[in-house]
């Protein structure tokens, strides 16, 4: 019997989690998957808890996924977005947080354009803070759902070769994937235009592949990142057309792979830019399963940060059937 795995107040990054903590979250997500398959998708695990989804950046997928996770665990939720709120009136992040705190909330899910914003909040308020993506730093629940999806298909993460392709420099998804996958023993590579590979990335323990053909030759899983249009405007790449030609994941490229390659994408996709439609909709694409797993992983994170015990997750799920 191993020592019981415990969690801190917040989930701001995967860098600070241990392999055991990550495994525990993935394990707890397993039984929660089934809840979303029921006709009545609700268990009382977080009944009476108040959760605020504080989204300073536009988001559909992540916000909705968190909201489903919260509601399926019976929490009371409030959504605040940047537009039309005090956020837009110039209230500082810390003041917004303290005001919410004064209304006696239990948890905050925060998405913010600035790296470190989740940590900033976590250091200043007693509620649990969950990072829903901070700038170019981390997006821990995305990293977790990617790992859960890989684990579903390959059985284990350890020893698997995962290449993250695209704009690594600006990607919080890349950083969370790198930390999480390395902690669970995967081999990790990154591949993209050299202008979008951050300096010193090798120091994290990943290898850098210069050409996407090399990535396809090497990897068992490709995690294809969204290429934001702003990167072209800022001069990191000359054009989307050229990006697609040299770095896009196409059927023709994948056909040359020595093995079947699983395809992940955190969404939203730019079809025809970083990924061709035939790949996105093809037999090895796990993109929609990532979305399904996102809800389960977020339920697991909410449950564990609220003090739920890992070994009770199965029981927590059954309570509603009594």
């Amino acid at each position: 019997m191993t020592a019981r795995v415990t969690f801190g107040k917040d989930l701001t990054d995967l860098e600070g989690l241990s392999a055991d903590q990550i495994r525990t979250i993935l394990d707890v997500a397993e039984p929660f998957k089934e809840i979303s398959e029921r006709p009545i998708k609700k268990v009382p695990a977080l009944r009476g808890k108040t959760i605020v989804n504080l989204f300073y950046e536009p988001s559909t997928r992540t916000r909705v996924s968190f909201e489903f996770a919260e509601k399926r665990l019976s929490a009371d939720t409030v959504n605040i977005s940047g537009v039309g709120s005090s956020v837009q009136k110039g209230e500082t992040l810390v003041d917004t947080a303290r005001n919410l705190e004064a209304m006696r909330i239990d948890m905050v899910v925060v998405r913010h354009r600035s790296s470190g914003a989740a940590q900033f909040l976590a250091d200043r308020i007693p509620s649990n803070v969950i990072n829903g993506g901070d700038g170019q730093h981390e997006h821990p629940t995305q990293g977790l759902l990617d790992m859960l999806t890989i684990r579903d298909h390959l059985g284990a993460i350890e020893g698997r070769r995962v290449c993250i392709v695209g704009d690594i420099l600006h990607s919080r998804v890349a950083r969370s994937n790198i930390w999480g996958l390395l902690k669970l023993g995967a081999e990790v590579a990154v591949c993209g235009p050299p202008t979008l590979i951050p300096p010193g990335i090798e120091a994290l323990g990943v290898q850098v592949l210069k050409r996407v053909e090399e990535a396809i030759e090497w990897a068992e899983v490709l995690n294809v990142l969204r290429l934001q249009l702003e990167r072209m405007e800022a001069g990191y790449i000359p054009s989307l057309r050229e990006y697609n030609r040299f770095f896009g994941i196409s059927v023709a490229r994948l056909e040359k792979a020595p093995r079947d390659i699983l395809i992940l994408h955190p969404g939203p996709m730019n079809r025809g830019v970083e990924i061709d439609s035939h790949v996105a909709d093809g037999p090895h694409s796990l993109i929609l399963q990532q979305v399904t797993n996102g809800v389960a992983v977020r339920m697991a994170v909410l449950y564990l940060l609220a003090g739920g015990r890992p070994e009770r997750a199965e029981a927590a799920k059954k309570e509603s059937r009594e």
Binding site: S115, G116, E138, R172, P198, P199, G200, I201, A203
Partner: peptide, 15 residues
């Protein structure tokens, strides 16, 4: 500063 720490923190670097 641009380097491993800026990469980890996701902050834009000054080389």
């Amino acid at each position: 500063n641009e380097g491993p720490v800026s990469t980890v923190l996701g902050l834009r670097g000054i080389p």
